[in-house]
Amino acid sequence: MSVDPYILLTRDQLDAQAVERLVADPGAGGVVAFVGLTRDHHLGRGVLGLEYEAHLILAEKMLAKLRDDAMQRFGLVRAAIHHRMGRVEIGEASVVIAVSSAHRAAAFDACRFLIDELKTTVPIWKKEFYSDGSEPVWVGPDGKPIAV
């Protein structure tokens, strides 16, 4: 696993405030965080929980690269991305992204950039489990089921 504390894929519960503290800095005027939570419904169906898996080596590498890109592009002070692996229950955080910058606009923009890019460029996969007992489904970046 990575020794970079700002990039983490973990089976443990995420602590959004800890990630915010990680990026706080005397040189930063603000911290913006995005916390993705497991929702109890999707496309009209009740959701019981999610399960995440990843190509761990590649996903860590790509998250670090994404962080580096955002740091440079938005002139951030610090940025962190923590993502859950394995089973995630309703209401729990699946992802926490926190960034700090001298001024707020860059932090808001960077946070949005990071979650949008994460969804389409990082090899992490999500399976949804439904309350109606139907077959669990792997969900793609557009939120729709992956199908052949």
């Binding site: 969804k119 090899p123 999500k126």
Partner: peptide, 10 residues
């Protein structure tokens, strides 16, 4: 060699 299906992180 790894074949990677469409991603679903976040």
């Amino acid at each position: 060699i790894d074949l990677l299906p469409p991603y679903g992180g976040g």
